[in-house]
Write a protein that binds this DNA or RNA. Structure first.
Lengths: 131, 131
DNA sequence: CTTGACCCTGGAGTGCACTCCACACTTATA
DNA sequence: TATAAGTGTGGAGTGCACTCCAGGGTCAAG
């Protein structure tokens, strides 16, 4: 598929796609059949890759980290131990984020409860939900 | 307390603190006693505010959003309904992030399990953990 | 009263992640 | 064959969140 269709499928602006290509995050095929096609061709797996990038971004990774992560992941494709190591690292980091998020949610919920109950006693303190 | 001590207590660089003050995120007192002190004075509640800012940042809010959120929060201080509304919105947003995070974690865990079990069947697909 | 540590303001610079633009080429349609 | 729509490259610009620096004021110690 061409870039405009890829943009539609992924929901990403064309400029952003080109930006990702320049960064090495996406690698569409070029000129498949004897130089007949001067355009970049995107495969279904590129769609998956794009979605993976967006996911990793919402999880707080920078594009540089995502690139490094994915390359390391590819490099360790034949070494299960290395791959597992990379995955474990990601899991650990996400786990930490989740804990901070849980603490924040508990704090917010307790604040809502406190207000709804007519504000008896002192307000819930951020310090009590260490994040 | 003066800015250098505040920096030590919060762990933030002095420049960042001044940046937050310029943005209106922190409001230390100025010249308390008859213009004798030309320096900004930070109170314990400023420390809490700084920690709140950092927390909100890790949760994905921009400084602009944090400012708006905190001002709206202050504005609704006497209207419990408005405050609860703001809190509910925050909770909703964080809940969404948590769900994406959970999906990612489940995906990563299943990938680890799949590798550890000698890679039987097909690899876990990102698509199956909609995020 | 000088020295050194600390403070303030204003403005410039940095890295990241886009976003926009000018210009040139290719391809489908009228 | 003219024209419009889509594609590629290179480079400039934007917004955010800092980060650094010059120039100048304040204050406590010696």
């Amino acid at each position: 598929m061409l870039i405009s269709e890829f943009a539609k499928v992924t929901g990403l602006p064309v400029d952003t796609i080109r930006f990702y290509i320049a960064k090495g995050l996406l690698k569409p095929d070029r000129s498949l059949k004897g130089g007949s096609n001067p355009y970049q061709l995107f495969k279904p797996e590129d769609v998956t890759a794009a979605r993976m990038i967006r996911l990793q971004q919402t999880l707080g990774y920078t594009l540089g980290e995502i690139l490094a992560l994915n390359e390391e992941y590819r490099a360790g494709e034949h070494s299960s131990e290395r791959t597992i190591e990379v995955l474990q690292l990601q899991i650990e980091r996400l786990q930490q984020r989740k804990e901070a998020l849980d603490a924040a949610l508990t704090f917010l919920h307790s604040k809502v409860d406190w207000i709804k109950s007519g504000k008896p006693g002192s307000a819930p303190r951020l310090e009590d939900y260490q994040c």
